[in-house]
Design a protein around this nucleic acid. Sequence first.
DNA 1: GTGAAAGCGCTAACAC
DNA 2: GTGTTAGCGCTTTCAC
Lengths: 365, 365
Amino acid sequence: LAFTRHVNIAMVAAEAEVGVGTVSRVLNSSPSVRDTTRRRVLEVIARLNYQPSRLATGLSRGVPDTVAILVPYLSRPSVVARLAGAIPVFEERGHDIIVCNVESPEQRDRHLDALLSKHRAAAVIVVSIGLTASRVAEFRRAGLPLALIDVEAPGVASTIIDDVEGGRLATAHLLDLGHRRIGFVGHESDDGIGNRSTKRRLAGYRQVLESSGLEYDPDLVRLGELTARVASDQTAELLSLQAPPTAIFASSDTQAIGAMTTVERLGYRVPDNFSVIGFDDIEPSAWLGLSTVRQPLEGSGQETARRVCALLDGETVRPLRQLLPIEVIHRRSSGPAPNGASREPRLPKSLPRKRTSRSPARVAK
Amino acid sequence: LAFTRHVNIAMVAAEAEVGVGTVSRVLNSSPSVRDTTRRRVLEVIARLNYQPSRLATGLSRGVPDTVAILVPYLSRPSVVARLAGAIPVFEERGHDIIVCNVESPEQRDRHLDALLSKHRAAAVIVVSIGLTASRVAEFRRAGLPLALIDVEAPGVASTIIDDVEGGRLATAHLLDLGHRRIGFVGHESDDGIGNRSTKRRLAGYRQVLESSGLEYDPDLVRLGELTARVASDQTAELLSLQAPPTAIFASSDTQAIGAMTTVERLGYRVPDNFSVIGFDDIEPSAWLGLSTVRQPLEGSGQETARRVCALLDGETVRPLRQLLPIEVIHRRSSGPAPNGASREPRLPKSLPRKRTSRSPARVAK
DNA sequence: GTGAAAGCGCTAACAC
DNA sequence: GTGTTAGCGCTTTCAC
């Protein structure tokens, strides 16, 4: 055993005085191995510190032990949270996780092409990236398990939230506080990657506004890059309007933080004379006291990872389209509209409107 | 070609009417292939949309195309930034990246054991996780290229900063502003994972203090979990001291943000009567106007990835121990000490002290 | 220059 | 139950 390159299954077999088949059976906990034999093999495995080659196993099985996760803009906190939810689930099952970062349509296609080729991944999770029908068909044809987060596709397991409802909740929250001019700062959906959640949240915003008898004013809506910096600029624009809003709903916390910072820098006091609500509930939001619509970010990753494992085990996932709960978290950044800002008298708590928020806003400590 | 499972090298060879060896040579751009042959093979490859199996290639070569990155607490912004720097470099070279998250010594050891086994990774990057000498020896013995970020080991390529100097710079910055009682909020090094950067930054803090004739007061130093929440609590403790500090140096921006938030919540005005400086310069720091010691986070990832590629190519990396530059970024969160807080008269800009900051503080826009 | 064939380390189908 | 053997898809000598 002196110059041995690396211990392989044959060496274990020889040492345990059995055939490689038996070792393989022990490795894969096949029931048809006598207990004494199994014990002997396991002893040798431990003694030799043998670890099966994933490459060889994968090649032989026709599928690697690796799961790929395709994410847009890895550095976004919400994306990281989803990743952080998914990773431990796979690690526990002994899967390697390969992370594919996508910041352009070309990158998306390159990764997808690669992933679709055989021997690349045992399963794929796609986060917040739209898939065409033909892409989905390719996955089906390749027999490659696929699960989606934050996006949907017909016949594909997806874990999502009701973004329209989220938009409604956020807007209703501000309306309840007496705000009547509410700005919207969102992510330009046309980044080529194909996520539409901002669009849906905006729809919810518009719905609540209009069903409350308020006018939808496109001037109050700004769409752009999903960064705090751009959101800052957009907020400044909104505040310089002839009739500026008294509150802003940002379709992500990152943007809400940019908005809040700018609002304060321009001399407003949050929430005394300006309110901000975001979306996601990323970690910094709690520190900064940002009101927001919380969605289970880590939970979505964890849940989807579990579903992928089920898929891998040949099971069929229960509700193909899995809806996760959302709720308004009321923190310091939102408060009653300043006096005179609304044309209606401000009522103590809840305003009589046609549409009210279903979930009561939860007050964070 | 109707029921073909998946196109492999044999099919390409057959279609191009050459041997598999030749296809393989084309794939690996061997010079010893006639140009007309090469062209014909490439044409077939394109037409059949052939993609070599990474598993088979890896098994045959004895090494996979995969690079592993071991990180502590994947959700930390600084960690994500380093990852984001490294990933594109590897993707460009066609490597898959597997991310291993470590939150405990057991997890670290499990991952390291797995990675050390053959056929797991072509190279490994370890971020902010201490490696024992015997671990390093294992890597060397396995012939597995290894590179470190934010930690060092004898004989191993590492990309680091001068943390002691960073601690000095931050402390000197506050001293320059007239602060005389400066709190320190840092990461408890004894998390079992083995990073020592806080310890070194604290050493720098102490050095500057003492060489400025100030007493090092252990009461002003709080070490704990690296979270904004814990830093908040520690800050509250510091402020409730009989002789509270007028400024805090936090050894990470995450903690600095927690400190800043708490300081303001307790009624102080930053920077009017309290100053905060952090470390790292993560993205939110710019939004929040946090003064900090910037280190090239993404740069460290990118640089290390490049060095690993060099290692993979059999080259030898230039300075084994690569020191990245750091600098103080002066933003809104730090300003002159409040009157009467210091026993010495406050001077306009720079105070005559034995030790001054080498790099002039850069003023952020 | 190019084809043929021997592995790489494992799984699974097939005998005994 | 367990040994034997034929692949999995590629790289890499070794002849020609």
